[in-house]
Design a protein around this nucleic acid. Structure first.
Lengths: 205, 205
DNA sequence: CAAAGTTAATCAATCGATTGATTAACTTCC
DNA sequence: GGAAGTTAATCAATCGATTGATTAACTTTG
């Protein structure tokens, strides 16, 4: 028998519902029903519906930043770092695609300032780590003098696009099938590493 | 005196509100107030709130497909076609960024099937036009044998990422300032054209 | 027993949608 | 040409349902 307190039950149920139906589209009653908790428990533990969302985000965001920073400080060439970052970035997002959808959805709204800035800051933080790796590589002469910000947005944008793209949009791959999802993950990583090599590294003379 | 009927007033007001507040976040009362129309007019003309959204989408989607197909049929090299497509794609999205945000937001939800499939089909249609250009280029030996689908998702993803990225996230550029927005647009086009050349075209021996 | 956890019941507010009545513009008919 | 008929457009008012939040009472735990 697994031990679960009501608080985590609520968080788990809310995460699924928010991802599927959006923040507005999810009612506190649904969260209560799905988690087996009473409606009042949501406000008891989190103060409000928005409080639930913020805590979900906080939990997911933590950890990834340190994961990125760890790669940054390794003693390997910038190119190897970047390949590693891409692999972990893809894997991280693929481990919870619905969450990533939810994040992007709320990022495109400005009406809930707290939610917005929380996501924005987390993304900016990630971006800066990758940026420093890329800039170092340019300084050291291993990368072409590309538009750093744009190149990062290309990496992030490609991953997002694959993750967000409707099921079966890409070569009839069903993202809900775990096996096909794994194939897609590897394919995406291969493509991005190809991008890094062809776009960033100088042609060997 | 400009001539505007209530119907287009509603569409215009709704487009702005949907983009800013999301579909759920926008009430029919807000649309009515902002457009100067009576609430009942929304159902009178469009049947429902969702009907308004679908018509907005329909209006925007039309035209772009023919625009893409026109490029496809031109008698110029595949590379030139692709550069042209990218430029027009970026320009199209930059002409109404909030609309593009709204599209992506609704694409990530599955609860409104009509809205979802309308957007999905429109995107798939665009993707296929670009795909055929790319494949032709590979066949003719002008492009490397890249992962076609992934490369397209990179182009689309980069554009989306730039458009969706929070204001001031990219080098402190304020996307609401028309002049800075134009600079960003050109910078994005330049970056993508650099991508096409370095990633797709074979290195000249 | 007191604090923490949990419950059903209820709150005011707002939602999308619909109603029946009214207005204005255009057609038809004698 | 002008009364009668017809249409689309517009309105205020209101519908039942649902929203997020709160209350007060009850139960468990330490």
């Amino acid at each position: 028998m697994e031990k679960t307190d009501k608080k985590t039950d609520i968080l788990r149920a809310a995460e699924t519902l928010f991802a599927e139906l959006g923040f507005e589209g999810t009612s506190t009653r649904q969260i209560a029903k799905e988690s087996g908790a009473n409606m009042a428990m949501i406000n008891y533990y989190f103060g409000s519906k928005e409080g639930v969302f913020l805590e979900i985000m906080e939990d997911r965001i933590c950890g990834f930043k340190s994961q990125l920073n760890q790669i940054k400080d390794e003693q390997i060439p910038a190119k190897e770092k970047l390949l590693k970052v891409v692999e972990q970035y893809v894997t991280r997002i693929f481990s919870n695609i619905t969450f990533h959808k939810m994040m992007h959805r709320e990022l495109s709204l400005t009406q809930r300032p707290e939610m917005f800035s929380q996501i924005r800051d987390a993304m900016a933080s990630n971006r800066m780590v990758i940026e420093s790796i890329l800039e170092k590589g340019i300084e050291e002469g291993h990368f072409r003098n590309v538009d750093v910000r744009m190149s990062i947005l290309t990496i992030m944008g490609t991953i997002s696009m694959v993750a967000i793209s409707p099921t079966k949009a890409i070569d009839n791959i069903d993202i809900n099938d775990e096996k096909q999802k794994e194939v897609l993950r590897l394919r995406l990583i291969a493509h991005l590493q190809d991008f890094i090599i062809t776009h960033l590294t100088k042609p060997t003379k």
